[in-house]
């Protein structure tokens, strides 16, 4: 459903959406990636913003079909940065973003194919020196280079953030669902291919990939008499045994708290 962020227009705003080739969870058929499509939807719902779609990756007819899925949402073209398979797409994306100089970069939280580490937005933000927001649910307004956005937190909570643009933001499944992709425009839209030197991902080349094993889930056994109790148990927050909520602290204090936690958990030694 088209969801207009706000009636205020975003004229002159330049939004880049990084899109990837998705894969259906049951049939593994190539399709538009769900979260990336939500990112496109969010960009389209900002009235008057100029939206560019960028994809960096290998090419294959399957991939083309999947990328055309984004075109079917009413997008004129996708910038296709051709990369050899097994390339690290981050350098190519950094180049492309430097060229197009968008104020806002939207993308899904993680890809449905390939490594799917969810690190690309962070690597991009680091390289470009921009802030990064994850779990964007809505862009409320953009005024004088500052965006007011809602960030999705677990269990339907929202947090309002103000961020100075340019910024990178990731969209997860709490953002509004993507609009239908129509066959006609998908077929007519353009995949503007552009070659770019591929930087092989050496680390990944050494990896061995195998299908994940399904991990057994621990059953939560709830002994309760009434439906109300069962509902309460099901809807209850997961026990967060310990932990602390820090608010209104200085960045240093926050960093120290995180550092302490990581040490305690044995992540850092």
């Amino acid at each position: 459903m088209p969801h207009n962020a706000k009636s205020s227009s975003h004229a002159g705003l330049n939004v880049a959406v990084l899109v990837s080739v998705g894969r259906h969870p049951l049939t593994a058929r190539a399709r538009r990636a769900d979260q990336d499509a939500r990112a496109v939807e969010m960009a389209l719902s900002m009235s008057d913003a100029a939206v560019h779609l960028i994809h960096a990756g290998g090419n294959g007819s399957d991939n083309e079909e999947a990328l055309r899925g984004y075109l079917g949402m009413g997008i004129g073209e996708v910038n296709l940065i051709k990369q050899s398979s097994g390339a690290d797409v981050v350098p190519a994306l950094i180049n492309a973003l430097r060229d197009t100089a968008p104020q806002l970069v939207l993308t899904g939280t993680r890809a449905e194919t390939g490594e799917g580490s969810g690190l690309v937005p962070y690597l991009l933000a680091e390289a470009l020196g921009w802030p990064v927001i994850n779990g964007l649910a809505q862009v409320e307004s953009i005024e004088q280079g500052v965006a007011t956005v809602l960030q999705a937190l677990p269990r339907g909570k929202r947090r309002r953030l103000r961020v100075r643009l340019p910024a990178v933001a990731t969209v997860d499944s709490s953002a509004p669902a993507a609009r239908q992709s129509a066959f006609g425009p998908a077929r007519r839209g353009e995949l503007a291919a552009r070659a770019c030197a591929s930087v092989p991902d050496e680390l990944q080349a050494q990896w061995q990939v195998q299908p994940a094993r399904k991990r057994p889930k621990r059953l939560k056994i709830i002994k309760s008499a009434s439906a109300r109790d069962r509902f309460k148990a099901a809807a209850a927050k997961a026990d967060s045994g310990s932990g602390q909520l820090l608010s209104d602290v200085s960045p240093e204090q926050g960093a120290e708290a995180i550092f302490a936690l990581l040490k305690e958990e044995g992540v850092l030694r």
Partner: peptide, 30 residues
């Protein structure tokens, strides 16, 4: 409306996506 506007109402888009991805309207594993 469907092929050019992409405007199939209610569950329409979902059913069509399922048909494309799983060859059945319910999105079940083929």
């Amino acid at each position: 409306l469907t092929l050019e506007h992409g405007n199939t109402p209610n569950k329409g888009a979902e059913v069509l996506d399922n048909l494309i991805a799983t060859d059945n309207p319910g999105g079940f594993d083929p």
